[in-house]
Amino acid sequence: MSSSLSFESISHRFGTEQVLDDITLTVPESSCVALLGASGSGKSTLLRIAAGLLDPSAGAVLIDGEDVTALDAEHRESGLMFQRPLLFPHLSVVDNVAFAARMAGRTKAEARRQAREYLELVQLGEYARRMPGELSGGQEQRVALARALARQPRILLLDEPFSSLDLRLREDMYDLIDSIRDQLRPTIVLVTHDRREAAILADTIAVLDHGRILQHAPVARIHHQPASPAVNRILGGLNEVPGVVRAGAHHSPLGRIPVPQDTPEGPGLLMPRQESLQLTTDDDARPGARGTVTQVRPSGAHSLVRVELEPGPGEAPVTVAIEVTGTPALRPGDAAGVALGGVVGWVVPL
């Protein structure tokens, strides 16, 4: 039931405001792409354009290479799920899921039989006869998912589908999406502002900011090799260390960090993830930098330690954040060593 989806040079304005600016993006068959961005980045607008609820000012939407831009939402065969479940309050759970089949002219019995299969899929088979008001928030969202799947959409569009659920319910929904991807292999576009959710659910992440795609890359790569400081920040990266690339390494207060061969020489911004940096002790053999602790912020099982590094000659002082397990016995003012653990540095030319 899956198809590929492409946006070709999609632009959209509301009045004088340019909401989307020349978006080109391909979502391969059976893959899951997350559109990650803050509110106002245009990600929901792009999803509404994909669903056919909104005509773009310019550009085309292709499904399996076929231009569907002029096709209304009801003919586009895309399933859309919003943050609110939006179950029809006058229909029972099973009739909500059977809605698409009924609209397509199926008999009530046939539509319900098929709907029950999808309710089983989201593990709510025994809730079929209830009314939407008798479900909890998480159950309502499962029914909404079953309803979208029962349309047998060529593309499944999810607009912040789990943001209103609490953490535990969200984890359950992630498991459910995993199992549905295993069984039905739908093509999914997920809009979210939650980078963790994007990382868990998606194969690739497209970072949207002010109506432009800043970078589209597989999850691991976009975290460790962001195309710009903006992408780094949107994905939660806290560190930007200015320095100079010379002879296959980045030189900065953080020391000499090896970088990929093709990194251009000259001034560059090193962006090590706070998870990749480590605190070192005096007897540590690894090369590293020295500095002074400025802040220790515990957050449960982890702590974030900020260290102001000692600048070398001609360098400006720079502060880096390091995520460590537990709560270290450090206070502001203590001396500390910092090293990049085991990975190659990633540099964006300045």
Binding site: Q123, G133, S136, G138, D178
Partner: peptide
Amino acid sequence: GSRRRSPRRSQQHSQLPSSRRSGAG
């Protein structure tokens, strides 16, 4: 008729037994 249908804005945890939940995969 419609009060039975009016959405209740409570958020409970899914009442499904966890064995069923993990069984989906």
